[in-house]
Simulated scan of single mutants.
Amino acid sequence: MDYLAYGWSVEEMCRQHPYLMQSEAHAAMAYYFDFQAEIEQEIRTEWEQVQQEKSLLSPSPFFVRMRAKGLL
């Protein structure tokens, strides 16, 4: 997700996540590139599910107050 969201290199991912070994990050990227279409479809499906569930929720009282004040 760091690669997709931020465009991070393996080296940057390892800097941001010190517990991650470079070999692990390279292996994960290799897997991603081998199955890129399937992984991105799964991400889209999950995103759509979350958006659908969010649309069913009532806004929180905080959100309603902030919108009423013109802050959102």
Rank of each mutant, 00 (worst) to 15 (best):
A5M: 10
M21R: 14
E53A: 07
M66W: 02
R65P: 00
Q41M: 08
E38W: 02
L72A: 11
R65M: 04
Q49T: 02
E46Y: 09
W47C: 08
Q52I: 03
A28K: 05
F63I: 00
L71E: 13
I43E: 08
R65E: 11
P59D: 02
H17T: 13
Q36T: 09
D2F: 04
R44H: 09
K69R: 15
S58M: 04
F63L: 06
E24T: 15
T45H: 12
G7P: 06
H26I: 05
Q16L: 10
K69H: 08
Q51N: 08
A27G: 03
I43C: 14
I43W: 10
L56K: 12
Y6S: 11
I39W: 01
E46R: 14
Y6G: 01
Q51E: 08
V10M: 01
Y6M: 11
E11M: 04
Q22A: 08
K69L: 15
E12Q: 15
E38M: 05
M1N: 09
Y19N: 12
Y32I: 01
H17Q: 13
E24K: 04
E53M: 03
A68M: 06
A5L: 12
Y19L: 08
D34L: 11
Y32W: 14
W47S: 09
Y3K: 09
M21P: 00
M29I: 09
M29H: 04
H26G: 02
F33D: 12
L4E: 14
Y6H: 14
V64W: 00
Q22G: 06
Y32K: 00
F33W: 14
M13T: 13
E53S: 05
A28L: 09
K54F: 03
F35R: 15
R15L: 11
P18N: 08
C14Y: 05
F33S: 03
Q36E: 15
S58P: 01
E38D: 15
F33V: 04
D2H: 09
Q49S: 12
D2C: 10
Y32E: 01
Y31C: 07
M13E: 02
Y3N: 03
L56V: 02
Y6V: 00
L4G: 07
P59S: 08
G7W: 10
Q22F: 06
Q41F: 07
P61N: 03
M29R: 11
W8Y: 14
E38F: 07
S23G: 04
Q52H: 07
M13Q: 09
D2W: 04
Q41K: 10
I39V: 15
T45V: 10
L57C: 06
L56S: 05
P59G: 02
F35D: 11
E40L: 15
A25M: 11
R65K: 11
H17K: 13
S23W: 13
D2E: 10
W8A: 08
T45Y: 06
Y32D: 01
A25V: 15
L20Y: 14
E48W: 08
